[in-house]
Nucleic acid binder design. Structure first.
Length: 801
RNA sequence: GCGGGCGUGGCGGAAUGGCAGACGCGCUGGUCUUAGGAGCCAGUGUCUAGUACGUAAGGGUUCAAGUCCCUUCGCCCGCACCA
């Protein structure tokens, strides 16, 4: 009979939908497993072939875990707020809600056509008021704990989208979304104090099963550094606080640099002799775009502040103070001591401005370049530190500074607080009210959700205000505190809000009284395995860890971390090896593949394409190999005869394959699991016939990968019930090896013969058998044997001279 | 510059320090066929065809190295004037 994939796939997808086959059970006594993939943004383009790579991989894990007896939660939903939908809505004069609904419908049918075993009874949507009610609720809790605050600050303003961007949305000085020019603009923004959690976000990574590159990238992003703050006095009688990671080099500080935005400049203004020059440098610095800042990084510029000098606390020496934009106001204290001998940037600056360079750690050649890699160096020209190692000097100077009240140890982070306001319509309204008398007042929780008003004009005003600001009937309200006239916050939340806690909602998606019930949270937490893209490592993944830690602190969730395990998939590239994109014309539509080859083929192909963690180019002709494999599985049916035991000749292969597939799925090595099954069926075809037991085990092993064809064959061959409700096969370690094995015999590491020995042969017998081989004996003739090694089941190696 | 990773046939890729190239694609020949861009069978790292040489290049450790160590080259990803 022909393998009619279309009919088969439709048939089983209908069964799964009607029977809710994959809905997680409400029985909290069962062992649980929570597998999670990042929910998609339902774009107008529909599903990309990249999506199923991640979804299928964890679908395989989820299906296997179910067969192993776990109560599995494998949910799906929609991260549906966001700019593209709003932009589409503006352009086509359709409400974003309608656009979203349409896009979701398309995505959902595409996902269903792939046979993914999501629990659709728990589908969530971040734009649903019953969902964003809780995003708003979390914001209010953050506010109550002082972790949400409003701040006048310089923000990134995209001149094209006319919207404020988070630092993370500015890439290379341009808007991440549209590539438009980004300039700075001062605006009052809601901020979230993620920096309060910086230490824990770093430290707790060590206890998690996250792949190394995710851990490294998050640590790098948070950028914790240990150093000291040191107080310098000035000739004007006040103080200047600097931050350094190298207090040991304090004797080498020959000048200071402060950021052009540093507040001391205004304080000193009437004492600074060249204030005109200083002012024009400040102006120039503020006009520089992010792009110019990064491009011109190498060429140091600056202006000395004439009329004020700093005093080095260790030796009382007066040193000049400069302003330069290589010192950032946003990091540390916005002021540094410059040690040109041991810092490249200071070295460049000193050379350009002809400033003294004093070596304080021996070992480099400071005539040529800064000596920075000097951890093992010895201190010189450093008074009481002379002769010490760098580490000892650090300790000694830190103590000295503390004793004299000149400085304290200090930890700094690159991580900044999270700009949480967006001047857009299609996001969660921030539930805050501004009253002239009472200031910012949170909306009472009883008034949540604060719904988005129905409006028709989504265009940003272009003055930096949200489109909501025009709708005075919504904006004007009463103060929850005093009852007087007040105005609502018109900014909305960023897209990252809804995705920062969505995995919690899946646990109990219809709860009207809480994010989820205590029982559900206790049972399902944490997510056992979370797979997603590397591009979300420093944004979504970090933000959601932050929110989760906060929810843990206020007693809402039972674990301090949301995800026990995190893996990441590589991209699927176009056939030309380039990133898939419309403009490159190399986009593959998953619908076409499902139509032409079937969902099972598509699934097997995407899993077989290569190492899961690496990117791999799409190859249309390779798909045929996956299809051929399934056709061959289909063809095995007519070779099946009776028998409740494995065919003797392939028994060990059966056990080995079960072992291999079982282990490979856990390690996301789907490509080698499939290769093992291919090898197995090649062996099956070499047999005159196969047994029901052979067939049965093969179908269960293959089921997570190709659920439709296996379920259909299971039914047609009369194994009884549904494959989805059967048990995962077990292997017998003892039966994984054949009775006799072929091993290689090496002399001095070169293969000279191959012999067959019993699998459990002793060391001595194996070596004796090896020596008996004529080719080996010939090699050994006249030589002295130095060493004889037998590696069980692999080889014998005889070292001889 | 800092951090992470990678370099293996024509291609995607396999190899707990133990016979490099599993599995698949492609290709070659055969077979069946009115036909084959289907199926089946056989072959397929390289060459000077030797039990020869081969995992970016060079060196080292080891009975044994794609794998471990050192040096060099090249590529990818993230961050980047973070003091």
């Amino acid at each position: 009979m022909k393998y009619d994939y279309k009919a088969i796939e439709k048939k089983w997808q209908d069964v799964w939908e009607n029977e809710n086959t994959f809905a997680a059970k409400q029985d909290f006594t069962l062992p649980k497993y929570y597998a999670l993939v990042e929910f998609p943004y339902p774009s107008g383009q529909g599903l990309h072939v990249g999506h199923p790579r991640s979804y299928t991989a964890l679908d395989i894990v989820a299906r296997k875990k179910r067969l192993e007896g776990y109560n599995v939660l494998y949910p799906m939903g929609w991260d549906a707020f966001g700019l593209p939908t709003e932009n589409f809505a503006m352009k086509n004069h359709i409400h974003p809600e309608i656009v979203t609904e349409k896009n979701i419908a398309r995505f959902k049918s595409q996902l269903k056509s792939l046979g993914l075993s999501f629990d659709w009874t728990r589908e969530i949507n971040t734009t649903d008021p019953s969902y964003y009610k809780w995003s708003q609720w979390i914001f209010l809790q953050l506010y109550k704990k002082g972790l949400a605050y409003k701040k006048e600050m310089s923000v990134n303003w995209c001149t094209s989208c006319k919207v404020v961007l988070a630092n993370e949305e500015v890439v290379g000085g341009v808007c991440e979304r549209c590539g438009g020019e980004v300039v700075h603009k001062v605006k009052s923004q809601w901020m979230l104090k993620i920096t309060a959690y910086a230490d824990r976000l770093v430290d707790d990574l060590d206890d998690l099963d996250f792949i190394d590159r995710v851990v490294a990238q998050q640590k790098n992003w948070i950028g914790r550094s240990h150093g000291a703050e040191v107080k310098f006095t000035t000739t004007l009688g006040d103080e200047l606080l600097i931050y350094t990671t190298r207090p040991d080099t304090l004797f080498g500080a020959t000048y200071m640099v402060i950021s052009p935005e540093h507040p001391s400049i205004a304080k000193w203004a009437d004492k600074i002799e060249n204030m005109d020059e200083v002012k024009s440098y400040q102006d120039a610095a503020s006009r520089k775009s992010d792009f110019e800042r990064t491009e011109l990084a190498k060429d140091k510029t600056g202006v000395q502040l004439k009329g004020v000098r700093a005093v080095n606390p260790v030796n009382g020496k007066e040193i000049p103070i400069f302003i330069s934009d290589y010192v950032l106001i946003s990091y540390g204290t916005g002021a540094i001591m410059a040690v040109p001998a041991h810092d490249e940037r200071d070295y460049d600056f000193a050379k350009k401005f002809d400033l003294p360079i004093v070596e304080v750690v021996k070992g480099g050649d400071i005539e040529k370049e800064a000596f920075t890699d000097c951890a093992s160096g010895i201190m010189v020209n450093s008074g009481f530190l002379d002769g010490m190692s760098v580490d000892d000097a650090k300790e000694a100077i830190t103590k000295w500074l503390a004793d004299k009240n000149f400085g304290t140890p200090k930890v700094n982070f690159k991580l900044r607080d999270w700009v949480f306001s967006r001047q857009r319509y299609w996001g969660e309204p921030i539930p805050m009210v501004n009253c002239e008398k009472c200031g910012w007042i949170p909306l009472p929780e009883s008034e949540l959700p604060l719904k988005l008003p129905e409006i028709q004009d989504f265009e940003p005003s272009g003055d930096g205000e949200s489109p909501l600001a025009r709708h005075t009937e919504w904006v004007n309200t009463t103060c929850p505190c005093c009852g007087g006239a007040a105005k609502r916050e018109t900014d909305t939340m960023p897209q990252w809000a809804g995705s920062s806690w969505y995995f919690l909602r899946y646990m109990d998606p219809h709860n009207e009284n809480a994010i989820a019930s205590k029982e559900a949270l206790e049972y399902w937490s944490p997510v056992d395995w979370y797979n997603g893209g590397m591009e979300h490592t420093t944004l979504h993944l970090l933000y959601s860890r932050f929110w989760h830690k906060f929810l843990y602190d206020i007693g809402v969730v039972p674990t301090k971390e949301p995800y026990a395990k995190r893996t990441s998939h590589g991209m699927i590239l176009g056939e030309n090896g380039e990133k898939m994109s419309k403009s490159r014309g190399n986009v593959v539509n998953p619908d076409d593949i499902v139509r032409d080859y079937g969902a099972d083929t598509m699934r097997v192909y995407e899993m077989f394409i290569g190492d899961f963690e690496k990117s791999a180019p799409w190859n249309t002709s390779s798909i045929k190999g996956s299809r051929r494999f399934l056709e061959r599985v289909w063809g095995l049916a007519e070779r099946m005869q009776g028998g409740d035991d494995y065919t003797k000749a392939i028994e060990s292969s059966m056990h080995r394959t079960i072992k291999k597939v079982t282990q490979d799925i856990e390690q996301l090595k789907m490509n080698t699991a499939i290769a093992a099954m291919m090898t197995l069926i090649n062996e099956m075809y070499e047999q005159p016939s196969i047994t029901r037991a052979d067939m049965r085990t093969l179908l269960v092993l293959l089921n997570p990968f190709a659920p439709h064809i296996t379920e259909e064959m299971w039914q047609q061959l009369g194994f009884g019930g549904q494959l989805a409700h059967t048990k995962w096969p077990v292997y017998d370690e003892a039966k994984c090896v054949d009775a006799t094995v072929e091993i290689a015999v090496q002399v001095n590491g070169r293969v000279r013969a191959k012999i067959n020995v019993a699998a459990d042969v002793s060391n001595d017998d194996a070596i004796a058998a090896a020596k008996a081989e004529p080719a080996v004996a010939k090699e050994l003739d006249g030589k002295t044997i130095m060493k004889e090694i037998y590696v069980k089941g692999k080889l014998v190696n005889i070292a001889a001279k």
